[in-house]
Write a protein that binds this DNA or RNA. Structure first.
Length: 1149
RNA sequence: GCGCGGGUGGCUUAGUCGGUUAGAGCACCCGGCUGAUAACCGGGAGGUCGCAGGUUCAAGUCCUGCCUCGCGCACCA
């Protein structure tokens, strides 16, 4: 069988065509029998993964990434590849990863894939580095989102309804609901190849987990860090629920409400202080007035009655005196006044005033109630510069009240109506319905307390529109309401938090120093209790007298229950496996030391507390797994979205600092948000979540993962662009596959076995040594990128290597080497090189995109890439290594990178530049690529003799020469070196620069400069002030390229001979004809070995040489080939093309 | 309002210590090349580097102010 057709293509570029042709193919292997369309599945034919003797690769089929990945998933499962990858590093130094638990009550989206990719790639990378990286999965299963889902489903819109439904049944529904999307999560996790142990995860609702949380809380309790207080929360009286800020954000609406200016009559003074509020219902609860100590206030007297424009209720009489901030007089006052006095707020402090509703709040033992207080947050941006303070109905109010010792007394019940005893006209009424009543009461003569001026206590009413939070379920306005609450005294450990945080390696560092550091510097006590049902119950029991007991384990609970029973308090049984959830734990009544019954505080804990306990609760520490815990705390690496800064990143640290007096994690990668293609945040409510399966099922998980990593720095917001995934697939993975396929198809055909043959590197061609050196250089940079969290740069550079260096140059330049059927050292060298490059490449890519490279690695080496060592070294396996430190030299010695030769890399860069320059020259002068040039000259630069053949082929020239007389083709240009010149020339620098650039005779100027400096516009220019560039002289078909940098830079010119000879024209025409006929063959879908009959007609053609006609016949496998003489016309059915004025027609039959 | 991070051709982005022609990829146009893949090569068009000031011989880069987007905090009386 003949295979010249194939060879013919190889020789198209070659000026030496004919020399490679093999005439005797009889008995040769049929290279057209390759499995063109075979399913890749046939590639995964190695049954063993651990063996290294399965080294003879088999050929590859067309790429079907999705099928490849799904088949591999099955194989991984059968082999327990994940477990195996860990077991084989069992003796390595541990690198501890902690999985942030997701909630499985929502469908996973592409944003989850991003976080999981970064988690996975670091774990896989560290594993390949020889570390033992175990990855326990985790699920966050408590909390409000779960309750809300269930409430929606069961239509339970208030706490009352939940309790009527039954807390038991409700919590059971929650317990089931948290697994709604577990299957979806599991499928996504597996499909994307996030290797994490989902078969033995930690689950926050498990009794063991809850027990550890209890234990942790008791540690805090015992250290005096847990206390009971109030927290002012947005609260919906209709649903009986308070809301987290997140939910509040869902319900902001702009509303217009009455705001009132109220006169607070001073007791020892005739004047009134004017204060403003938008919530009249809080006025009965008023117990203080806050002023800014440094704000300037005025006392002013009403001079005359208000003008006609006065509208609405309220007012003041002539002679009344009013105090308010000076800046706000114009805004507020509707009367002409005389300013009597001016003073800072501090001088008002301590003055007592008449309570508006004397019955509403009992004074208790407060000495500061109904006096003026100071607060530095008081501003004069609106209101009167005096802030009405109702302790229980505003956060600032509450804090001020606690500080100043105001009575903390509710005037409003949990149902949203005034408690009885507030005022006869208000008692029992819903607060929002009382605005008019309150305004009327204040406006009455003497005011609501009868002690005000005749004009009443209301000065003004003004409609005020602002954004106010509403219940997202019932649409009712929320009330800021002080709720009973439990706190962890984080303020007590603030310095520790800051210190621990300083030792965390943050990526990026500004999140740690900035956002997170800022949060810590302003740390507030952590409100950990929630008036909810589904969560870890707060394990605190309390008697009516206020005695408290915190229970830290089941055993302790059992003991306490027994004690209570012994004291005569009835209790249900408390078995070893008692469910530690509500309502079961609510049913236990304990006994205080003085014999009083104690009931559990009816709260569950903030579910963030649960996840903050993960480092130890996942092992049920301290009840079980003590060693396990001790060996894995603090953890080495966590990675989540930046939205966890105040979430998990914080609660981990908060719990570890308070419980263990330690940091929780040593390294934290904080990921940017994932946005949709338009830059909007991906969220369920927006409905713009990208389904990862869209890409898993199209481009595959490899491409999806690689895209996400290369699209930008991990901490930058990622605009997820579906088209980018496609691009990544086409560029990176198709290219890689085709390089692989190219290698492996020939390797299979030739029976190449990397273990049974050798090819010493030093004997390989420059091209081989070049790509190996590039691989070395790129691998080092790649590794460096990983170390510095610059995955995006690392992967972009690697992709460039694959596409550009490997596929586009090495493989393109090497094709002919493998086409040669005879065994040859050069072919073997190429196969070994490809084998080595691909093998190392697979290892480098494996952490990021683990599928295709495993298929490739298995076929090339007979083993999984996920068992392979990191080519840059395996520090984890070094004696005495830890996740933080190891013997650098020893680690370096474990690297397996090929020889690096930077000089060779530089030379090849130059060669490639020259090849490009040659193409540019042809474009410039309009000489087509197929028309050979007689000769080319290389001017200046290093010795490239070894590459002349290569260049001749690339450039399609018959021969390459070195031109030593630089001035024949090059001239000099001078460019100013601003850095050197600027200090000397100062303001003149631009003129001097222009003079240097525009010098009429640059050669002479350079000579003058070299001879001790030239005077340019009065400035002495020395050699260091200029850069000398050599460029091609005009009038030649030439291009100059610059390679290298600074001192080492070179200007090399390429000159092509544009003179035609009959031989060149004939040869060029032969190629054009051949090319067209080959295209026709392909269009006809002819088999490569099929022969044809060819007839050619030409007009205005160069004279064809005999040998070129023969060559055409040979190349096109024409049994019969007729070149009709000039002048005979072609039949109509002939195909015609034109090249350089020659019209060619041909018929293939 | 405060803090952090962005704003560079239609899109995605690179840009070091401030150095004079702002670099890529996608898409587009022209040409070339191809038994090389969803390719490859050469060329072209497309940029007031968010706006306005300032520093400097020189600003995408440094400073100030503003606009705008994202995130977080405080969103108040």
């Amino acid at each position: 069988m003949h295979i010249e057709g194939l060879e013919g293509y190889a020789s198209i570029f070659s000026p030496f065509f004919g020399t490679n042709q093999r005439t005797d193919a009889e008995g040769g292997k049929n290279r057209d029998d390759w499995p063109k369309k075979s399913h890749f599945g046939s590639d995964i034919q190695n049954e063993t993964t651990g063996g290294t003797n399965m080294a003879r690769p088999s050929s590859a089929g067309e790429l079907d990434a999705v099928a490849l990945e799904t088949a591999l998933l099955e194989q991984w499962k059968q082999e327990s590849a994940f477990q195996a990858s860990i077991e084989s590093r069992r003796n390595g130094a541990p690198f501890i990863f902690l999985e942030g638990p997701p909630t499985a009550n929502g469908k996973p989206g592409i944003h989850h894939v991003v976080a999981r990719t970064y988690k996975d790639l670091v774990c896989r990378w560290k594993t390949m580095e020889g570390f033992l990286v175990e990855r326990k999965g985790g699920w966050d299963t408590h909390g409000l989102p779960v309750e809300i889902e269930v409430q929606k489903r069961l239509d339970l819109m208030s706490n009352e309804q939940i309790e009527a439904f039954g807390m038991d049944a409700f919590n059971q529904a929650c317990r089931e609901s948290v697994w709604t999307y577990e299957a979806a999560w599991r499928e996504m996790t597996e499909r994307m190849a996030y290797w994490v142990d989902l078969d033995n995860p930690y689950v926050t609702l498990h009794n063991d987990y809850v027990e550890s949380c209890w234990w942790a809380l008791k540690q805090m309790f015992d250290k005096g860090l847990l206390y009971r207080g109030h927290k002012v929360l947005p609260y919906c009286p209709q649903t009986g629920t308070s809301y987290s800020s997140h939910e509040v954000a869902l319900g902001y609406k702009e509303v217009e409400e009455p705001s009132v200016y109220v006169k607070f009559k001073l007791i020892d003074d005739d004047a009134s202080i004017l204060a403003w509020t938008t919530t009249p219902w809080t006025l009965p609860g008023n117990v203080g007035l806050a002023v800014g100590p440094d704000v300037t206030y005025v006392r002013c007297r009403i001079k005359e009655a208000a003008g006609e424009s006065w509208e609405g209720v309220g007012g003041a009489e002539v002679g009344e005196e009013i105090i308010l901030a000076k800046d706000l007089m114009k805004e507020v006052l509707r009367h002409h006044v005389d300013i009597i006095d001016e003073f800072p707020g501090s001088s008002l402090v301590g003055q007592a005033y008449e309570s508006l509703f004397p019955e509403a709040v009992p004074r208790g033992d407060s000495t500061t109630a109904w006096t003026v207080l100071e607060a530095d947050w008081v501003t004069t941006t609106d209101g009167t510069g005096v802030v009405h303070t109702a302790v229980m109905y505003g956060e600032d109010d509450y804090n001020l009240g606690m500080e100043a010792g105001l009575p903390a007394y509710h005037t409003v019940g949990m149902d949203g109506s005034f408690v009885s005893g507030t005022h006869p006209e208000l008692d029992g009424k819903y607060v929002k319905d009382c605005d008019a009543t309150i305004i009327a009461l204040l406006s009455a003569s003497g005011g609501s307390n009868g002690k005000g001026p005749d004009s009443g206590l209301l000065y003004r009413e003004k409609a005020y529109s602002h954004d106010y939070p509403h219940c997202w379920r019932t649409d009712h306005p929320l009330l800021y309401y002080a709720m009973d609450s439990w706190f962890v005294r984080m303020t007590a450990v603030k310095e520790k938090l800051l210190e621990f945080n300083d030792n965390v390696e943050w990526a990026p560092d500004w999140v740690g120093e900035g956002r997170f550091g800022e949060w810590l510097r302003n740390v507030k006590d952590w409100a950990i209790s929630r008036e909810r049902y589904w969560g870890t119950p707060l394990p605190v029991w309390r008697s009516e007298e206020g005695e408290m007991k915190c229970v830290g384990s089941i055993e302790e609970l059992q003991a306490e229950v027994a004690k209570a029973i012994a004291a005569g308090i009835e209790n249900p049984e408390c078995p070893d496996d008692v469910d530690l959830h509500r309502p079961i734990v609510d049913n236990y009544t304990l006994v205080s030391d003085d014999g009083k019954p104690m009931h559990r505080e009816p709260f569950v804990m903030d579910c963030w507390f649960d996840s903050g306990c993960a480092p130890f609760a996942q092992w049920h520490h301290p009840f079980d797994g003590g060693e396990r815990f001790n060996a894995s705390f603090p953890v080495d690496y966590i990675c989540e979205g930046v939205d966890q800064t105040r979430g998990w990143f914080y609660t981990l640290l908060a719990v570890s600092a308070t419980v263990f007096d330690s940091m929780a994690y040593k390294r934290c990668l904080s990921l940017g948000l994932i946005l949709d293609a338009e830059g909007k945040k991906m969220s369920k409510s927006r409905g713009n979540i990208v389904d990862p399966w869209d890409h898993f099922n199209r481009e595959g998980a490899d491409a999806t993962r690689w895209y996400m990593v290369t699209a930008g720095a991990p901490w930058n917001p990622l605009k997820f662009d579906s088209n980018g995934v496609r691009e990544t697939y086409a560029k990176m993975f198709l290219t890689l596959w085709n390089v692989y396929k190219f290698h492996v198809d020939y390797a299979a055909l030739d029976g190449f076995d990397p273990l049974k043959s050798e090819s010493p590197v030093e004997q390989r061609s420059e091209l081989d040594r070049w790509i190996l050196s590039r691989l070395h250089t790129v691998a080092l940079g790649y590794h460096d990128g990983f170390v510095n969290w610059q995955y995006h740069k690392a992967c972009r550079d690697l992709e460039d290597f694959v596409v550009n260096d490997l596929s586009n140059w090495y493989v393109r330049r090497s094709r002919r080497r493998l086409w040669d059927e005879a065994e040859s050292g050069d072919k073997l060298a190429c196969q070994h090189t490809l084998h080595e490059v691909l093998t190392t490449l697979c290892k480098l890519i494996a952490p990021v995109s683990p599928f295709m490279v495993d298929t490739i690695h298995r076929n090339l080496n007979g083993s999984s890439v996920h068992q392979a060592d990191w080519p840059v070294g395996v520090p984890g396996s070094i004696d005495g290594a830890t996740a933080d430190a190891w013997d650098e030299a020893a680690a370096k010695a474990t690297a397996t990178l090929p020889l690096q030769d930077l000089a060779l890399e530089a030379t090849m860069t130059l060669i490639r530049e020259l090849a490009e320059a040659g193409r540019r020259i042809r474009i410039d002068v309009g000489r087509r690529q197929r028309l050979p040039c007689a000769q080319g000259w290389i001017v200046a630069g290093p010795d490239l003799a070894n590459f002349h053949d290569l260049l001749a082929e690339e450039l399609n020239v018959e021969s390459i020469h070195v031109e030593n007389d630089l001035d024949r083709f090059q001239r000099i240009e001078l460019a100013p070196n601003f850095r050197a010149l600027a200090p000397k020339a100062r303001a003149q620098v631009n003129d001097v620069a222009a003079a240097i650039k525009g010098a009429e005779d640059p050669e002479a100027l350079l000579e003058a400069i070299r001879n001790g400096g030239a005077d340019v516009l009065g400035v002495t220019v020395e050699e260091s002030d200029v850069e000398v560039k050599r460029v091609e002289r005009s009038g030649f078909a030439a291009q100059t390229v610059e390679v290298g940098e600074g001192e080492a830079s070179m200007h090399v010119s390429l000159v092509l001979d544009m003179n035609d000879t009959p031989a060149l024209l004939s040869k060029g025409m032969a190629r054009d004809i051949t090319r067209r006929v080959q295209a026709k063959r392909k269009a006809l879908d002819l088999a490569i070995e099929a022969t044809i009959d060819l007839e050619v007609w030409m007009e205005n053609a160069p004279e064809m040489l005999q040998e070129d006609e023969a060559w055409v016949a040979h190349e096109t496998r024409s049994a019969g080939c007729v070149f009709h003489p000039e002048g005979s016309s072609a039949p109509g059915e002939a195909e015609t093309f034109e090249v350089d004025g020659t019209i060619v027609s041909f018929i293939v039959s």
